[in-house]
């Protein structure tokens, strides 16, 4: 078994992982065992700067966070594709295939960049009050003309812009 290269390189990693787990477990257990306990009602309520908590924390939050997670997967997959290519690029050049390797990957990066340009123009990367997507701009126009005669607050325009995505 020790001659097996795979076991030889990954067994220490497993051992390290288990020891780290034991360490984390021991820390939690020790603190639970010897820490003193004197719970009161105020201590046991969710922290809200000393006020009585209002409502539940299971509230809705911005859809932006889901969007970032999806975009992350797209671009991380791109990075995963780039890694093996980066490793063999010098070998390809040595074999006289350098330009082939380069052009193949540049076509791929080009396609990814088109998608990147699209999400940028759509405003998926905007978190503030800037409005760049046409849809959001339309909603803003509607808010401006169809709303009350008063000019809406800049914040309200921003909120409308966010919802238009």
């Amino acid at each position: 078994m020790p001659d097996n290269d795979f076991v030889r390189s990954y067994l220490p990693l497993l051992i390290h992982f288990l020891l780290a787990g034991a360490l984390a477990g021991a820390l939690v257990l020790l603190s639970w065992l010897i820490g003193y306990r004197k719970p009161t009602r105020a201590k046991m309520s969710p922290y809200e700067c000393g006020m009585t908590p209002i409502g539940d924390a299971r509230a809705r939050f911005s859809v932006k966070f889901y969007m970032v997670a999806m975009l992350f997967i797209l671009f991380d997959v791109e990075a995963v594709f780039l890694y093996p290519w980066a490793i063999i690029l010098k070998d390809l050049k040595r074999m006289g295939q350098g330009l082939f390797g380069l052009s193949e990957m540049f076509v791929y990066i080009g396609i990814v960049l088109v998608g990147y340009w699209y999400i940028w123009k759509k405003g998926a990367l905007d978190w503030g009050l800037t409005i760049s997507s046409p849809q959001a701009a339309r909603i803003t126009r509607v808010t401006r003309s169809g709303g009350s005669s008063q000019e809406p607050e800049p914040e309200l325009v921003g909120v409308a812009g966010k919802g238009g995505l």
């Binding site: 809200e48 908590p53 924390a57 509230a59 932006k64 991380d76 791109e78 990075a79 780039l82």
Partner: peptide, 30 residues
């Protein structure tokens, strides 16, 4: 944690960490 501050902090942190992970991963390709 089921607390509003924790939820907001956790959301912000995870969005920030995944966002910068892309730049971090791509910077190492060179």
């Amino acid at each position: 944690s089921n607390s509003k501050y924790s939820l907001l902090g956790g959301l912000r942190a995870s969005a920030q960490m995944v966002s910068y992970e892309i730049a971090l991963g791509l910077s190492l390709v060179g």
